[in-house]
Every structure is written in C-alpha cells, then in structure tokens.
C-alpha cells in the first residue's frame, strides 16, 4: 500500500451570499497517493475548484465556510490553521498552479522576483541566492534564456511560458503535491501538450503527486492514475482511470462520455447531449443531484441521497448511485451495462 500524501475526508464548504447559502461542496472524500496523479473531473459549478481551494486555505472566509471535514497532509491536519501556521505547508508541501497564468501572477513584479519571493518567505534565503535558484527553476521548466527571462515581467511572456513560470514557482520548495487547477484550459492544444508533457516529466524526476482539476476527459485520459468525478458538490464516482473510462458505473459519467465526439470508432455516433442543467446549490435536491437529468432515474433517486457504494469485485471503484444498491434488482436487466457485478456498502 502506498502512503497517501493528501487525505480529504467528508469536506463540506458553504458560501453565504445575498441570495442565501450555497452548498458548494457536500461531503467530499478522496486521497492522493504518493507519486500518483488524481484527477477531479466535473463541469463548471460542480465544486471541484472550491474543494482544492479549501484544502489550500485560499477561499475567502467569510463568505466561505468549511462546515465539516478534514484534510491531512502526510497525516497532519491542515484545515482550520491560522494563516501563519498554514504557511508551513502552503507553497512548501503543496504547490499550486492556476488556470489563468495571466491573472495569477503579479503584473508589476518580474518573473524572477516572484519565484524568488517564495524561497525568501519559505526557505529564508537571501534575495540574491533565491534569484539564482529562480533562474535554475525556470531552466528546469524549459524556459529558454532563463536568466534573461527572469528579469522580464508577465506581460512579456506568452500564455504557455507563463504557465511554465508558474510551475517553476510552485516547484520552488520541492512540494510533495502539486495541485493543478485547469492548468491547460486557457492554452492551445499544442501548448497544452507541452505543459502536460512537462508535468509528466517533473512527476517522474521529482516523484511528486499531482492533484489535477479539469473538465476535459481527454486530459484525464492522458494524465491520471485515479479519477474522481464530481457533480453538484459531491463525488459521484471514484476509481482507477480504467474503472472510470471502461467500467463507468454512474449514469453521469456515461452521459459525459457520450456527449463527447470520439475519433477512435470512426463510425460517427451522434452525440448524446445531457438534457437540462445542474441543480441549484442554494437548495440542493434532497435526493441524487443528477436525478432530474438521469435517463435511468427511479422513484427513490429523487427522494433519497444514494451512498457511495464500492464494487466488491473491483476494489476502490465507488459510485454514488441507487442502481448499485443491493435492493435495486428489478431494473438489473434493463440497466445491465450500468450494474456492477455485486454490491456492498462502503463509506
């Protein structure tokens, strides 16, 4: 059994707004293994970014509020720490890169100084020492002419180069976990490939774990070892990469897959859109969040929230769906492709 770098258990996050309380994250649990990549997939508003921002302690509180749960880095609780305590792990044990490198870096500071700042704050280096290390870091993320580039400002960098610079900054303290929140969404596909290749390379050489947040199943297929699918603030399916792609257990996961064009079959299957839109998290439905859009929805789905159920024949593959419940046999024939081999309750 490999050790877990990050363990999140039953995390719930709310936001107080004028319109009421948004239950953005509702009881999310997952773990990131050492040296492995966990991808959290989901569409906009499903709570995937709020989840990792809560772990990093960077959601604004108020209006945000972590109402329950724990997050442990190498066994040490990190939720509810003060800002100063949090700095022991934030940027040190866990590095983070964001979707939009243009707005995530300080436009009035040179790239070199921004990376050096991390080292001055967390490692107590002198400025000149830190700057020299910053140039090495830029070099490690394959930025050509690193010493010249370190003296430039963000506006002088292209989007792909900025993302490299941000990766360099997040690597400054040799984190054991890198959180990448939609790292390539703003980039073109050729630049995306460069950045994904860089992350794969760094994972190999540094042995760090990656927690990848994305909406793109193709990026997941390219990068992940483990996958968690989120919908309406909850993880609705979790398992290995192959579990999620080849043995999908939740109707939402299946729905996502059939809504995307595939280039492998060559036969042009018509895309199957998922009708409707995600539920309002101001007042989440009492039953399954997906029930209103689910083609397989049953009576119970609208009334009662399904539990995360593990497939005993396929350990570590969990899905939050009533179709997996042992008392849902009547529909077994009808929903054969969805039904796992057997069922028992876990978590």
């Amino acid at each position: 059994m490999t050790a877990n770098i990050l363990e999140v258990t039953n995390l719930s996050v709310e936001f107080e707004t004028f319109g009421g309380t948004v239950q953005a994250v509702r009881g999310v649990s997952f773990a990131v293994e050492a040296g492995k990549t966990l991808a959290i997939v989901g569409e906009s508003g499903c709570g995937k970014s709020v989840t990792v921002q809560s772990v990093m302690g960077i959601i604004p509180m108020p209006p945000g509020k972590i109402t329950s749960g724990s997050a442990k880095v190498k066994g040490e609780e990190i939720l509810g720490l003060t800002a100063i305590e949090a700095n022991r792990y934030r940027g040190v044990e866990i590095g983070m890169i964001f979707q939009d490198p243009m707005t995530s870096l300080n436009p009035s500071m040179t790239i070199g100084n921004q990376i050096a700042e991390t080292l001055v704050v967390h490692r107590g280096k002198s400025h000149s020492e830190a700057l020299a290390m910053a140039i090495k870091l830029l070099d490690r993320t394959h930025i050509p002419e690193a010493s010249k580039r370190a003296r430039q400002y963000p506006f002088e960098f292209s989007g792909g180069m900025l993302q490299r610079a941000m990766i360099a900054q997040s690597l400054a303290c040799n984190p054991s976990l890198l959180i990448a929140d939609e790292p390539t969404t703003a980039l073109d596909v050729t630049i995306q490939e460069q950045i994904l290749e860089l992350l794969t390379e760094l994972q190999r050489t540094e042995g760090m774990s990656i927690l990848l947040i994305t909406h793109d199943l193709a990026v997941v297929a390219r990068m992940a070892d483990q996958v968690a699918v989120m919908y309406a603030g909850q993880i609705i399916e979790r398992g290995s990469l192959d579990d999620i792609f080849y043995r999908s257990a939740h109707p939402y996961t299946l729905g996502l897959k059939s809504a995307m064009p595939s280039n492998t079959g060559r036969g042009d299957k018509r895309l199957q859109p998922i009708p409707g839109s995600p539920p309002d998290l101001f007042s989440p439905p009492q039953g399954c969040g997906y029930a209103a859009r689910c083609p397989q929805a049953m009576q119970i789905c609208k009334r009662k929230l399904p539990v995360l159920t593990e497939d005993p024949g396929d350990s570590g593959h969990l899905s939050r769906c009533w179709l997996q419940h042992k008392d849902a046999p009547d529909v077994e024939e009808l929903y054969q492709p969805l039904k796992l081999k057997g069922t028992s309750s876990a978590h």
């Binding site: 050729t190 793109d216 199943l217 297929a221 390219r222 990469l241 792609f245 595939s262």
Partner: peptide
C-alpha cells in the same frame, strides 16, 4: 496538431 490532440480514451493515450 492532431498528435497533440488528446483522446478521451486511456488505452490510446
């Protein structure tokens, strides 16, 4: 361009 385009299929990736 097409080589850089990832497929939503782990075996291909």
């Amino acid at each position: 361009l097409i080589e850089s385009n990832p497929e939503p299929d782990p075996n291909i990736e």
